[in-house]
Amino acid sequence: VDNKFNKEQQNAFYEILHLPNLNEEQRNAFIQSLKDDPSQSANLLAEAKKLNDAQA
């Protein structure tokens, strides 16, 4: 993981990586967004979790 991520951002990265119901395309999009703007990690994680739950 890129060293410019802080602890919260790293946690978001790993959580998104391991959400079971996202397809690869969705997962990659969230990860790319996280890399583009790490400050949005909490929002991105919340969105990813919502999508993950919706696809459960």
Rank of each mutant, 00 (worst) to 15 (best):
V1K: 07
V1S: 11
V1P: 11
V1T: 08
D2V: 02
D2M: 04
D2W: 01
D2Q: 02
N3P: 09
N3L: 01
N3I: 04
N3D: 15
N3A: 04
K4M: 14
K4Y: 10
F5V: 10
F5A: 07
F5Y: 06
N6K: 01
N6I: 03
N6Y: 02
N6H: 03
N6G: 12
K7R: 05
E8K: 02
E8V: 01
E8S: 04
Q9Y: 09
Q9G: 02
Q10R: 06
Q10L: 09
N11K: 12
N11D: 09
N11S: 13
N11W: 15
N11C: 14
A12C: 07
A12H: 07
A12G: 02
A12D: 04
F13D: 01
F13R: 06
Y14F: 11
Y14K: 07
Y14E: 08
E15T: 15
E15L: 14
E15Q: 15
E15M: 15
E15K: 15
E15V: 15
E15Y: 15
I16K: 00
I16L: 13
I16F: 04
L17K: 10
L17N: 07
L17F: 13
L17R: 11
L17M: 11
L17A: 03
L17W: 15
H18L: 10
H18S: 14
H18I: 10
H18Q: 08
H18V: 06
L19V: 01
L19P: 00
L19M: 08
L19G: 00
L19R: 00
L19Q: 03
L19W: 01
P20D: 09
P20C: 10
N21I: 02
N21G: 06
N21C: 13
N21S: 09
N21A: 12
N21T: 05
L22P: 00
L22T: 00
L22V: 05
L22H: 00
N23P: 06
N23H: 11
N23E: 06
N23G: 12
N23R: 11
N23M: 14
N23K: 13
N23S: 03
E24P: 07
E24V: 11
E25M: 13
E25Q: 13
E25F: 12
E25V: 08
E25N: 14
E25W: 08
Q26A: 04
Q26G: 01
Q26P: 00
R27W: 01
R27A: 05
R27L: 04
R27G: 01
R27I: 07
N28Y: 14
N28Q: 14
N28L: 14
N28R: 15
A29L: 05
A29F: 15
A29S: 07
A29M: 12
A29T: 12
A29W: 15
F30G: 00
F30V: 01
I31R: 04
I31M: 13
I31H: 05
I31P: 00
Q32M: 15
Q32H: 14
Q32P: 00
Q32A: 13
Q32V: 10
Q32D: 05
Q32F: 15
S33L: 04
S33M: 10
S33W: 13
S33A: 08
S33Q: 09
L34A: 07
L34W: 10
L34R: 00
L34H: 01
L34S: 01
L34Y: 04
L34F: 13
K35I: 05
K35R: 14
K35A: 04
K35F: 12
K35W: 12
K35P: 01
D36C: 14
D36F: 14
D36P: 01
D37C: 07
D37R: 05
D37A: 03
D37I: 07
D37P: 00
D37Y: 07
D37H: 11
P38I: 04
P38T: 03
P38A: 07
P38N: 02
P38Y: 02
P38W: 03
P38K: 05
S39F: 02
S39R: 09
S39N: 12
S39E: 13
S39W: 09
S39Y: 12
S39V: 08
S39A: 04
S39M: 12
Q40E: 09
Q40F: 07
Q40K: 12
Q40C: 08
S41C: 12
S41K: 02
S41G: 03
A42T: 10
A42S: 07
A42L: 14
A42V: 11
A42I: 08
N43M: 14
N43A: 07
N43K: 14
N43H: 10
L44A: 02
L44N: 01
L44R: 06
L44P: 01
L44F: 11
L44D: 01
L44M: 06
L45T: 07
L45S: 05
L45V: 08
L45M: 06
L45I: 03
L45C: 06
L45G: 01
A46K: 13
A46I: 08
E47Y: 15
E47S: 11
E47P: 00
E47K: 14
E47C: 15
A48Y: 03
A48W: 01
A48D: 00
A48S: 08
A48E: 00
K49G: 04
K49T: 08
K49Y: 15
K49N: 09
K49F: 14
K49R: 10
K50D: 06
K50A: 08
K50S: 11
K50T: 12
K50V: 13
K50N: 09
K50H: 07
L51Q: 09
L51Y: 09
L51T: 10
L51W: 11
L51F: 10
L51E: 06
N52F: 02
N52R: 02
N52D: 09
N52H: 02
D53P: 01
D53T: 13
D53N: 12
D53K: 15
D53L: 15
D53R: 14
D53I: 13
A54Y: 14
A54D: 11
A54Q: 13
A54T: 13
A54K: 12
A54R: 12
A54F: 13
Q55E: 11
Q55F: 10
Q55T: 07
Q55S: 13
A56Y: 10
A56G: 13
A56I: 12
A56L: 11
A56T: 13
